[in-house]
Design a protein around this nucleic acid. Structure first.
Length: 298
DNA sequence: CATGAGCGA
């Protein structure tokens, strides 16, 4: 057999080194340790054989922790003698300096998308504002497809023109009351009760009766897709002004949407603009019907 | 197509 001849070449470099050294180690002088001295300097002198089999002297000089200690503050040194607490109680002394806590800490986002009640700086096209909170609502004005592309990327944008600008400023018609002007200036901001309820029949009154539930300015939305939920409706209508309520009719038996819902606006003007702009609007591949809601039958 | 839940002293 030629196996024996192959043996050395099969050895790994680690084994090679060990074997070479082990045999002859007893020939080397013992390792010497000097210090640490007053300055914390420690010297270690040891001898080894190098690759060529020559004896070499290796001197290692280190500084002990005494000096490192000196750089720590008194307080820090003191803390090392504290008894362990918490999870660390079960640890060996000095085993670990740092413990990883397994305690769950829930972070609260004060202004999570879709939940913020204040709306600062709404300007320009409200549709352009939508979805900026991180939610995925891409609503194409040309083909009405949701979540797929923006209007500018619509594959059909050359076939059909999007109708004028989707949403414009409050109508400069007879609805230009003081309330409307105020609402237009600070869109979505707080509207004092005396200014709510909008114009029309309500303007005669001296403010809205707060004890009654505010069912004014109720807009009915029909032809909603099955999976449209209240947050979706809010997202769609919110850009037109402060929304006081959204509701999607749910079939109690099946738990599925009945395909219609209601959105209440704080001001009648905003509701009117929403109706004007969202009625006939393509949403989730369906054409929305948006109109004034009849008073609830009780 | 279609007009909302809860609501108790």
């Amino acid at each position: 057999m030629v196996m024996a001849a192959e043996q050395p070449s099969k050895m790994r470099w680690g084994e090679l080194e060990e074997d070479d050294g082990e045999d002859l180690d007893f020939l080397l002088p013992p390792k010497q340790v000097v210090g640490p001295d007053a300055n914390g300097i420690k010297k270690v002198v040891e001898y080894k054989f190098n690759e060529e089999g020559n004896k070499v002297k290796i001197t290692t000089t280190t500084r002990t922790r005494k000096l490192a200690h000196a750089r720590l503050s008194k307080r820090a040194v003191e803390r090392r003698s504290w008894p362990k607490f918490g999870d660390a109680v079960h640890e060996d002394v000095g085993a670990r300096l740092t413990m990883i806590s397994t305690e769950e800490i829930l972070l609260e986002r004060p202004r999570a998308p879709g939940t913020k009640q204040d709306e600062n700086k709404v300007s320009g096209d409200p549709l352009a504002q939508m979805g900026k909170g991180g939610a995925v609502l891409m609503l194409c004005r040309t083909c009405g497809k949701k979540g797929d592309h923006w209007t500018s990327r619509c594959p059909y944008k050359d076939l059909a023109q999007p109708s004028e600008s989707f949403i414009d400023k409050p109508l400069p018609s007879d609805t230009t009351t003081a309330a409307a002007a105020a609402a237009g200036a600070t869109k979505g901001a707080y509207v004092p009760p005396s200014m709510r309820g909008g114009g029309g029949a309500n303007s005669e009154r001296t403010g809205t009766d707060m004890r009654r539930r505010n069912d004014e300015n109720s807009v009915r939305v029909t032809n909603l897709s099955e999976d449209t939920r209240e947050p979706d409706l809010l997202e769609l209508f919110r850009p037109f002004g402060a929304v006081s309520r959204v509701y999607v009719a749910i079939d109690q038996k099946s738990g599925m949407s009945r395909g219609f819902g209601f959105v209440n606006f704080v001001t009648r003007e905003d509701a009117e603009r929403a109706i004007n702009k969202l009625n006939g609007y393509g949403y989730d591949s369906l054409i929305l019907r948006v109109e004034w809601a009849a008073p609830r039958a009780n």
